[in-house]
Design a protein around this nucleic acid. Structure first.
Lengths: 141, 141
DNA sequence: TATTGTTATACTCTATAACTATA
DNA sequence: TATAGTTATAGAGTATAACAATA
């Protein structure tokens, strides 16, 4: 009993991978001229909330290992986009600098354009379903 | 005039990235015990169609650079999962070996379980919209 | 004893540049 | 002169292991 061959174009998982690759490549190109990576901007958005957010907090919110925040925050700090503020002898809150706030505003404008274009590419009858469907795939994965 | 802060959880693009990361991590873990990567299996699925597919063909179908096929196919060849068949002095068709066909069948079973679980996580009212919405994001990107 | 920050390292997927040989 | 295959390298986003210092 041999299984049927799988057609890649019937697999939501494959489409998810292809769509994410295509869209993130596009977003990356839009952010590159500002010297930012996608992960930089997502971190900066979380930092911009104003509340005291540590590197470990960011990692938890983004569901990545906190070790990965070290080079990311070092880059942002070296570019004078964020700075650290000691909360106690162990933890440090991350704040945007003034330059960081300005750069983030530019990045957000770019993201808004990108997101609008992304949604525009989805046929109208599927459009409102995309966000909730995707959220279901990573919320409490 | 300062722009509104963006909330990540309202962005389809962010959800797309998170969902793809979460799902591909899960699929990767399912395939790892078989010694396969996700990209290995997608290539093997395309190879399994039976028609003469070259490394360059695979790259075009997967929308990646053909240089990336070199180490991938070398791994599969070293593992005796595929072999090459000269089409002329320049091009080589890639075929599955018998071992490759058997391993692919196991991988396909794993993928089917994975894809079913993925869809199951999407609320029923959004489920049928996921595949067409994602396809619109990468078809003729 | 759990958590924070860190260093060092490695893996996966993808890209660019440049080359050889063949169609 | 366009295409196939290749080598070498790089970049982005993750991961693991192990450690010191602090809560």
């Amino acid at each position: 009993m041999t299984s049927q061959p799988i057609r890649l174009d019937t697999l939501p998982g494959y489409a998810l991978r292809r769509a994410a690759n295509a869209m993130m490549a596009e977003l990356g190109e839009r952010l590159a001229p500002m010297g930012l990576r996608i992960s930089d901007v997502t971190a900066m958005i979380l930092i911009s909330t104003g509340s005291d957010v540590t590197a470990s907090d960011l990692a938890r919110m983004l569901d990545i290992k906190r070790t990965n925040m070290v080079p990311l925050l070092k880059r942002l700090e070296d570019a004078d986009l964020v700075h650290r503020r000691a909360l106690d002898g162990k933890s440090q809150a991350i704040d945007l600098t003034e330059a960081g706030s300005k750069v983030l505003e530019q990045a957000q404008a770019e993201i808004e354009t990108f997101e609008a274009g992304l949604l525009q590419r989805v046929p109208e009858e599927h459009r409102e379903h995309l966000l909730p469907a995707l959220q279901a795939l990573y919320h409490a994965a």
